Simulated assay, not measured.
Amino acid sequence: MKASSSSTALLTTSPKSLSLGVIGNIGNIDAYISAVNRLPMLSQEEEISLAKRLRDNNDLAAAQSLVLSHLRLVVSIARGYLGYGLPHADLIQEGNIGLMKAVKRFDPDQGVRLVSYAMHWIKAEIHEYILKNWRLVKVATTKAQRKLFFNLRSQKEGLDAMTPAQVEAMSKSLNVKKEEVVEMEMRMSGRDIALEAPSDDDDETFAPIAYLSSDANEPSKVLEAQQYDRLQSEGLEAALGKLDPRSRRIVEARWLANDDGSGATLHDLADEFGVSAERIRQIESVALKKMKGALAEYV
């Protein structure tokens, strides 16, 4: 069927506004369901006649009649997906879009009733909506994963993890690998977690945002840590190598003997070398200046 302004209007018109002229301004989902269940069904002859008017003359009024007479089908199909925790009204809305797509593509000469043809389109739109909104991260992306998701969701009993025997039985039932069943079950059992904590006054509330971000992983911090490690290993050894044995002994005894910095005193080293404490201080000062210059190329 060629696209036209009238057939395009069928898909750009919301299901609610499409039915306002017949079932009135519906204020809640229960009233809507009650109203669409009172809409008359079409006979096969009426359905074929309307479908030909839409195909041959782009008759939007005929399309509206076809859609309205099948709204109860959408309600029935959408009710089967309430277990996914999504609003019933939204499921119906998406199903109505699928119904309108089916009406637009329906060929009355194929000898198939619209109800049989439309079920595929209705379910396809509802499936797409569920996969987009059931989790922030999609649980199924390929066609095989989507099929496994809905089959597993409908056949799995309860919320408990499946036993190996149940996994094997499910894999045989769905004709898929056991590993695929286990992986999909893990995806389905995951839940969304808010990155930020709720807005309350509880200072002890922690959220993932508090520990997902770490300053240690910032490029500048990583580079700084690498430079420090190089300074501690290569640089320090090179700087000590430029000192004479006595100066090196004094520096190591004073600053490198213990990790807590509690090295030998000036008087201890004065007794060791038989000089005054002041002389030890002078040697230490000259040695540290020499080391500082040697370490400059590592900073």
Rank of each mutant, 00 (worst) to 15 (best):
1 M>V: 13
3 A>M: 11
5 S>F: 14
7 S>N: 07
13 T>A: 00
15 P>K: 01
16 K>W: 14
18 L>P: 02
18 L>R: 12
21 G>H: 04
22 V>D: 09
24 G>F: 14
26 I>G: 01
30 D>N: 13
30 D>L: 11
37 N>H: 11
40 P>N: 09
42 L>G: 10
47 E>I: 02
49 S>C: 08
50 L>D: 05
55 R>P: 01
56 D>I: 12
59 D>C: 04
60 L>D: 05
63 A>C: 03
64 Q>G: 08
65 S>T: 14
69 S>H: 02
70 H>C: 05
75 V>F: 02
83 G>M: 11
84 Y>L: 01
85 G>V: 06
90 D>G: 00
90 D>C: 03
99 L>V: 11
100 M>Q: 15
101 K>H: 13
102 A>F: 02
103 V>E: 00
106 F>E: 02
111 G>N: 07
111 G>D: 09
112 V>C: 11
114 L>M: 03
116 S>A: 15
116 S>Q: 08
116 S>M: 10
122 I>K: 03
123 K>T: 15
127 H>N: 07
128 E>T: 12
130 I>A: 00
133 N>M: 07
136 L>S: 10
136 L>V: 12
138 K>N: 11
140 A>D: 05
140 A>P: 04
143 K>D: 13
143 K>S: 12
144 A>P: 06
146 R>C: 06
148 L>V: 03
151 N>T: 07
153 R>V: 07
155 Q>C: 08
156 K>E: 03
158 G>H: 02
159 L>P: 00
159 L>C: 01
160 D>K: 14
160 D>N: 11
162 M>T: 01
163 T>C: 03
164 P>S: 06
164 P>L: 06
169 A>G: 10
170 M>E: 06
171 S>Y: 10
172 K>G: 10
173 S>K: 15
173 S>L: 15
174 L>M: 15
176 V>N: 04
176 V>G: 01
177 K>C: 04
178 K>M: 12
178 K>G: 07
180 E>P: 06
182 V>L: 14
184 M>S: 07
185 E>V: 08
191 R>C: 08
192 D>F: 07
198 P>Q: 00
198 P>A: 01
202 D>K: 10
206 F>K: 12
206 F>E: 10
209 I>M: 10
220 S>I: 13
223 L>F: 06
223 L>W: 05
224 E>V: 05
226 Q>A: 12
228 Y>W: 12
228 Y>V: 14
231 L>F: 14
232 Q>E: 09
234 E>F: 09
236 L>D: 02
237 E>M: 11
240 L>D: 04
244 D>Q: 14
250 I>W: 02
251 V>N: 00
257 A>G: 04
261 G>F: 02
262 S>T: 13
265 T>D: 05
266 L>R: 09
270 A>K: 06
277 A>D: 14
284 E>M: 07
287 A>E: 02
287 A>R: 01
296 A>W: 10
298 Y>T: 00
299 V>S: 09
